[in-house]
Nucleic acid binder design. Structure first.
Length: 335
DNA sequence: GGGCCCGCAGGG
DNA sequence: CCCTGCGGGCCC
């Protein structure tokens, strides 16, 4: 038996999916199975052990002892498990006393490719769950220099430090007239559809973050309790993106319900264009703002979750054409 | 795992 | 300043 809400959800999904498919594939119509192209080793990390310990972003790297011993005073070890993310973990002990020193070395971040994902080893210290020193302005359109598609972070704060998506919590960042700089796909709306090369996205607002007067909640996210509108600043940004067609940086997170979600943390999935903006009835019975995104061609294929690999192969994935270096950082000159 | 509450960055 | 927001940690 299927509940009414569930049916509603299925209908929304079907409608959104049809809409995305109507947008067409991103140029290359070749439906190449991603595993057959460049990421043949994409899933080796977990293939051997049947019981996955839930998070294995890095099976093993050049770092001597990745094993659970987090206490290694290894100064080069910067990545942490998401679980440790706000703790007062003393990685790098004394570096903290003088953050400026270790932060300012302005070498560009180094990327270590790792099959299914890319580990980001920048010189930037990620201090706790706070914003570190940025090398670039997040209020720009297009790629951030030095940050490859596929770059992975444990937390939103780290992603913000690298200027890919500035807000810690909010899903949308942008300029109301020129368009969005970036969005985060991190769950939150269960009738969004993610095909990888295209997805639908639900806008912001309409949530009662404060609870009632007697029962103040002061939440950062909450159930829908009123209609969304395009007056909302964030929604306006995305609406403008449809007109300006500026590229939007997209990150996907572990909460996303999609074969393209990360196992944990957040991943930079490159540039998309917002093709369409509209309103529809959301699952919670309120009007929501919806947006259809389409990925720009010429970008690395998206990794899929392990458990999704057995499913039907996805279309629209193809090896990189010539890389699109023409889409570079393009300043907004308003600050 | 769910509930709750907090800090925090960004923008008006 | 104030408020928002697809985090994150902790406690249960």
């Amino acid at each position: 038996m299927v509940s009414k809400a569930e049916r509603e959800r299925e209908r929304n999904i079907a409608r959104n999916k049809a809409l995305l498919e109507a947008l067409g594939l991103p140029e290359i119509s070749a439906s190449v199975a991603p595993s057959s192209t460049k990421k043949r080793k994409a899933t080796t990390s977990q293939s051997s052990d049947s019981k996955r310990p839930k998070k294995v972003p890095r099976p093993d790297l050049s770092i001597p002892d990745p094993g659970s011993s987090e206490t290694t005073p290894e100064p080069t070890e910067r990545r942490r498990s998401a679980r440790n993310a706000g703790k007062k973990v003393e990685y790098n002990g004394e570096a903290q006393t003088n953050p400026g020193d270790s932060l300012v070395k302005s070498r560009l971040p180094r990327i270590v490719s790792e099959g299914n994902f890319i580990e980001h080893e920048s010189n930037t210290e990620y201090v706790g769950n706070k914003l570190g020193k940025r090398l670039h302005n997040p209020k720009t359109y297009g790629h951030i220099p030095g940050i490859e598609v596929g770059t992975w972070w444990a937390t939103r704060a780290q992603c913000s430090t690298d200027a890919v998506h500035a807000p810690f919590v909010a899903g949308i960042s942008g300029h109301t007239e020129k368009g969005a700089y970036s969005v985060a796909l991190s769950g939150g709306y269960d009738d969004d559809v993610d095909l990888g090369y295209a997805f639908t996205y639900t806008g912001s607002g309409g949530r009662d973050l404060k609870g009632t007067k007697n029962k103040p909640k002061n939440l950062r996210t909450a159930p829908q309790s009123s209609h969304q509108t395009f007056d909302n600043t964030f929604n306006k940004c995305l609406e403008s993106s449809v007109k300006t067609r500026k590229p939007v940086r997209v990150i996907r997170g572990y909460k996303l319900r999609s074969p393209f979600a990360t196992e944990e943390g957040y991943r930079y999935d490159g540039l998309y264009v917002v093709e369409k903006a509209w309103m529809e009835l959301g699952l919670e019975g309120y009007q929501v703002c919806k947006f259809a995104f389409k990925r720009l061609p010429g970008q690395p294929p998206l990794p899929r979750r392990e458990e999704a690999l057995n499913d039907e192969p996805v279309e629209g994935q193809s090896a990189d054409e010539e890389s699109d270096e023409n889409i570079k950082e393009e300043d907004t000159k308003d600050n």
